[in-house]
Design a protein around this nucleic acid. Structure first.
Length: 369
RNA sequence: GUGGGUGUAGCUCAAUGGCAGAGCAUCUGAUUGUGGUUCAGAGGGUUGUGGGUUCGAGCCCCAUCAUCCACC
């Protein structure tokens, strides 16, 4: 079986494993940097390899609009197009249709919306999303789902029902998991019974992996953690679990501790472009004056090119001068910071001291001593 | 030397004789399946200087300094 998930060790509910794909193995738990438009912003694939990234995420909606999924197919597929030969995951476009386009109309069959680029009217259905994702050729592809605000029960109930119907149609449209693995997406907002119901239903479709969607979209962190507590026991042990769009450095151990294997988040690259750096002692704003004459690296414990080479004073200068190099250097560090964080957690699970690592990291990162 | 213009926040500039403001810059904060965006807040003034008129002057009058332009 191409997409085998091997569970190698557990520590409490935390899991260390390997997910095998046609483009290589993904050691889990894993953090995937986001390259929405077939580019991890400001970071070339050569550097991603150096950062030890084993999975990146790209996006159906954006690539369909530009340059077009058929063009990418004709250029040899997404891996060849963007010169990244390791595993790729594509999101289904469900989230973007709702978050990016104000004008959208949803019905039982799909969603009609307007392009945020040129305003032309488009329509996504589960079958369209599957076709686009097959054209792109990522290793892991996602079901077309509906991601609602998580706290309005009536809205969430409806989204769960529709997400299930669409999951079934995605499953039928993509029946062969030998080249691309189709993951199901659990919805249900912050409601435990809906989450359990969703997790249970999706298993009847026998996906090679399961994602938890609809979190980190406005609920509080305690609500998100509680939802994970209720959802994860309802998912199978022998399949990877993917928490979509998370997260902050403190969210990662909280979720791994509860049994999540895969993460993606725009945070490391976005906060980099906004001039901030992730460190063991919290996120710091490199615009701030306190760094103006600081000859120390961002993070003395970090092994990335940025930290091994440049001072905080220089990085602050680049941020103030709005130099492109600031985006590149801070993105390199922030991605490496999260990937190393995952590597540390994986090792701690093998060593049986995950809780110690998590407590120590969280106390330092959240400055609660 | 003569005539004219201009002096207001770090910069560029607003402000009927009636509470001295904006943009940029500076400083601080926000951003979770990416619109390199945007938003929120803060600090910052002896209105060149000295007189005068007026209930009240950034604004009117006099002097002075600085600066720019034109002409000797």
């Amino acid at each position: 079986m191409t997409f085998e998930f091997e569970l190698l060790a557990t520590d409490g509910n935390a899991r260390a494993g390997v997910f095998h794909t046609p483009h290589g193995d993904i050691p889990t738990p894993v953090f995937a940097p986001v390259g929405t438009v077939a580019s991890v912003k400001a970071v070339p694939p050569r550097d991603l390899v150096e950062l030890n990234a084993s999975l990146i995420l790209s996006n159906t909606y954006h690539l369909h609009l530009r340059p077009g999924d058929e063009l990418i197919r004709d250029m040899g597929g997404l891996h060849r197009f963007m010169a990244w030969d390791r595993p790729i995951l594509t999101d289904s476009g469900g989230f973007q249709v709702f978050s990016l386009t104000k004008i959208n109309k949803i019905d039982e069959d799909g969603v009609t919306f307007k392009s945020h680029i040129d305003g032309r009217q488009l329509r996504f259905t589960p079958e369209v999303s599957m076709q686009i994702q097959e054209n792109l050729g990522a290793d892991i592809i996602m079901c077309f789902d509906q991601c609602p605000p998580p706290t309005d029960r009536a809205v969430v109930e409806n989204a769960v029902r529709r997400t299930h119907a669409w999951a079934q149609r995605c499953r039928e449209a993509h029946s062969d998991d030998s080249v691309q693995a189709l993951f199901g997406i659990v919805q249900g907002g912050i409601f435990p019974d809906l989450r359990e119901e969703s997790a249970t239903f999706l298993q009847t479709l026998d996906f090679p992996g399961y994602a938890i969607g609809g979190l980190a979209v406005g609920e509080t962190k305690p609500e998100m953690y509680a939802t994970l507590d209720h959802t994860l026991p309802a998912l199978p042990q022998n399949k990877p679990r993917y928490l979509m769009g998370v997260g902050d450095p403190d969210d990662l151990p909280e979720a791994v501790m509860r049994g999540i294997d895969i993460f993606d988040c725009v945070a490391p690259t976005r906060v980099a472009r906004h001039g901030s750096a992730l460190t063991p002692y919290g996120r710091i704003n490199m615009r701030n004056r306190e760094h103006a004459r600081d000859d120390q690296p961002l993070d003395v414990t970090c092994d990335c090119y940025t930290c091994k080479t440049f001072s905080r004073a220089y990085l602050r200068h680049l941020v103030h001068a709005k130099e492109l190099l600031a985006h590149q250097l801070l993105s390199v560090h922030n991605i490496r910071f999260l990937i190393r964080h995952m590597e540390n957690m994986r090792q701690a699970i093998f060593d049986g001291n995950f809780k110690d690592y998590a407590d120590s990291f969280l106390n330092r990162y959240l400055q609660r001593l």
